[in-house]
């Protein structure tokens, strides 16, 4: 794992998980947190305040001709929805770039992050996974390693990795051959540096290659992995790496993922993303370049 550390150490400014998200996550998992504290955090983040007001006053929440202020909006949306909005909104800052290495247009990685989060959430609900929000969070963060790869290699990424991607070879295998580490391993290490729990870091680490056997097997990893593939099929965050990834057979079997279910998940994921983009009317432009 020396390569992972070397790559992380060599990046001048590592991507940072927005402080608002960290504070809100802590508050919302603490039963003692009161709405005043949450309002205080949101009030110091203008973009987040705007997003909360926009959601609470939207038709989606049955707006009935009255305007809700920030406090009323927080009450109206509830804690979990608030965290969700914060994650979606803040992720647009975190995943703003990452274009050059992977051939992604501005905003494309954000679309992929949120799309993967929605897909993982849908799959988790169907399988009655006990922590749907954890699946959402892991789906959202699964590709943070690409930010580091982009910062470290930039335009050098493609010429260096291309010779290592033989037919039938995945991009993560190519990255390991070219750099000694892949973006999933790097993302997991970054998550640990953010002091996120080990299980979240592992979900990031295994989002392309979830372990099939006990004791390492975890349904969370399977769900995040399946969400990633659904996201590819929905045409989200596809860059130079194309579709050079594999769906793990044990995940397909374990999640009973058939063609019909997968296609339905693709349409639902895409539809939810479109709704979110319409809601966040200042969302990044979709699409990417190859």
């Amino acid at each position: 794992m020396a390569a992972v550390a070397d790559i992380l150490e060599s990046v001048d400014r590592l991507p940072a998980l927005p402080g608002t998200v960290i504070r809100l996550t802590a508050m919302l998992t603490d039963d003692q947190a009161d709405l005043g504290e949450i309002e205080e955090v949101a009030r110091h983040d203008e973009a987040l305040s705007m997003a909360i007001l926009r959601f609470a006053n939207s038709a989606l929440y049955g707006r009935a001709g009255r305007e809700f202020n920030l406090r009323q909006s927080i009450v109206r949306l509830g804690g979990k929805m608030l965290l969700r909005i914060a994650l979606e909104q803040q992720a647009s800052n975190l995943f703003e770039s990452a274009g050059e290495a992977y051939g992604l247009r501005r905003g494309a990685l954000w679309r992929g992050a949120v799309g993967g989060a929605f897909a993982a959430e849908e799959i988790a609900k169907k399988h009655a996974f006990p922590d749907v929000d954890l699946c959402f969070l892991c789906g959202l963060l699964r590709d943070v390693g690409k930010l580091v790869m982009d910062a470290h290699y930039g335009a050098d990424y493609l010429p260096r990795v291309s010779p290592h991607i033989a037919p039938g070879c995945t991009v993560v295998e190519g990255e390991r051959a070219a750099f000694g580490a892949d973006h999933a391993q790097i993302g997991a290490e970054l998550a640990l540096r953010w002091r996120l729990p080990q299980r979240i870091a592992d979900a990031i680490r295994y989002h392309h290659e979830p372990p099939a056997e006990e004791p390492d097997h975890d349904l969370l990893f399977d769900i995040v992995h399946a969400g990633d593939i659904i996201c590819l099929w929905a045409g989200l965050a596809i860059g130079h790496d194309g579709l050079q990834y594999k769906l793990a057979p044990h995940v397909r079997r374990g999640l009973k993922l058939g063609r019909r279910e997968a296609e339905l998940d693709i349409t639902v994921t895409w539809g939810r993303l479109r709704e979110l983009e319409e809601m966040m009317d200042d969302s990044p432009t979709q699409g990417k370049s190859t």
């Binding site: 995945t170 050079q244 990834y245 594999k246 769906l247 397909r252 296609e263």
Partner: peptide, 10 residues
């Protein structure tokens, strides 16, 4: 995607 063993073939 790679190794799509005929189940999806989107």
């Amino acid at each position: 995607v790679l190794d799509d063993d005929g189940h999806f073939k989107v």
